[in-house]
Amino acid sequence: MTHRRLYWEDVAEGEVIPSVTLEINRNRIVMIVSATRDIFPLHHDPEFAQAAGYRAPAVATAFLQGLLGRCLTDWTGPAGKVRKLGLRLNAPTLAGDTVSAGGKVSRKYVDNGDHKIDCELELIKQDGVIAVDAEATVVVPSRD
């Protein structure tokens, strides 16, 4: 199987980073608790979540960074290296939601020999609510 390999020279500022979409169904809720190890009841217990003012359990933040990380390396291919990932929470991502992670290239530059791309990302829910604003820096290979 050949894998995508994004080169720095082929990236344009403003370019769209394709979205990846996941449904937060009950199986996903279980997988998130299991994989992140974050068993805080807000992340899986509907009664606890409702008492805390949420419609349904809210996913752990580690899931959000995992989804954004996947979005980035799906785009760059495995040679892309995520160096920095910053997230700001705007709205909780809840059981029953469907979330899409995507964004665009904000800047490309060479820094200390590294071919870097800065990205602006968003995690958007099915109703258009932006759950997370994020920014990332990835290093990708150069053709030079």
Partner: peptide, 19 residues
Amino acid sequence: RHWCEMVEDANPLYTDEGY
């Protein structure tokens, strides 16, 4: 692998030993 299942991340650097 559990993490990759969680977000359906197929990056071969994480789970493909040969690659």
